[in-house]
Computed example of a mutant assay.
Amino acid sequence: MNAHAAAPPPASALDDPRDHALAVAGLRAGYGRGGDIVCGIDMIQKPETIVTVIGPNGSGKSSFIKTLAGLLPARAGRIEVTGRDITALSPARRVAAGLAYVPQEANVFASLTIAENLKLATEFIRGRAGVGPGQRERVLALFPELGQRPKTLAGNLSGGQRQMLAFACALLANPEVLLLDEPSAGLSPKIVGETMEAVVRVREAGVTVLLVEQNVAAALAIADEVVVLVAGRLSLRAKAGDVKQADLAGLFFGKEA
C-alpha cells in the first residue's frame, strides 16, 4: 500500500489560504477533566476534495469532528477555514465563517415540514455572503425531491431522505467546508449508496467535505484521501485508492502500513 504518515503542516501553509480549505495544527481536545481524546492532530485539506476519517471505535473520530464544529472546545491548537482562524469562535460563528456541520443524529426537526426546516436553517445567520434565494435555488437543484415535497413533515421521511434534508439545510449557509458525522449510520445498503452519491454532488458543487464514516467501503469509494485515527492520533494519511480494506485491521491495531 502506497501510504504515508502525515507530517505536521508547516507554518507557511497555514498562512496561505490558497493552499487549503481546512487546516488543523496541534489540535487537542477532551471532555471535562479527563485526558485528551484528540491528541495533537495536524491536517490540511485542499479545496473541493473529500477526505474521509476512519478508525476503530473509540479512536476519537466523532470528538475530532465535534471539535472542528465548535461543540467540543479545543484545549490546544488551531483550526482555520480558508485561512481564517476560527478556533475561538462559537459554533454559530463558525457557520458564518464558512464551516457547516451535519451531526449523525437529530440533524433535522422531525415535527417541522421540509420547507420549515430549510427556512430555519438560515434564520439566524448574519453576515455570510451568498446566503439567500440564489443559494436556496442551487441547493434544491442538488436535491430536487425536497423541492417537490415542501409540506412533508421531516419525521415522515425515510432515513436517506432525512439525510438529504440535513445536507440541504447545511448547504444553505453557503459553506466552504462541510463536516459530515457518519451520514450512512443506520441506512440500508441501497440508501447508503444514494447518500454517498449526494456527498459527491456536494463536492462537485464546489464544497470541501470532511467525512467521518464507519462504512469504510462506501467512504473509500468516493473519497480523494483517507485519514486513519487511532487513539486520537493521526496514524495514516493516504490517497483513498491506495488503501485496501485488508490493510486496515492492522492499522487500526497500531501496526505499521
Results as ranks from 00 to 15, higher is better:
A166L: 01
E145G: 08
Q163R: 14
T49S: 14
A7I: 08
V200A: 14
Q135Y: 07
V212M: 13
A198G: 11
E123V: 13
L229D: 05
I37S: 07
R75L: 03
V202R: 03
T67Q: 02
N57T: 10
K244S: 15
A29Q: 02
A166E: 01
T49I: 06
N2L: 15
G83E: 02
R136E: 11
G127P: 04
E105G: 12
S63I: 00
V226R: 02
G35Y: 05
Q161N: 05
V24S: 03
V51P: 00
G32W: 11
V95H: 09
K66D: 07
A74M: 08
I41R: 01
A29F: 02
L179F: 08
N174D: 11
K46R: 15
G206Y: 10
G155Q: 07
P9R: 04
L229W: 03
L251R: 11
L180A: 04
M196D: 07
R136S: 08
A205I: 15
E225S: 10
A121Q: 03
A13Y: 02
L72G: 03
I50A: 00
M164Y: 02
I125Y: 06
L68N: 00
R138M: 04
A115H: 00
A23T: 01
A238Y: 07
R126F: 13
R233D: 04
D247P: 01
G35S: 06
V177T: 03
N117H: 05
P183G: 03
V226S: 07
Q245L: 14
G127V: 09
A115F: 06
L112T: 10
R233V: 04
L178K: 03
R237W: 12
T152F: 02
V216I: 15
P17F: 01
I86G: 01
P56R: 11
V192W: 09
A3Q: 09
V38R: 02
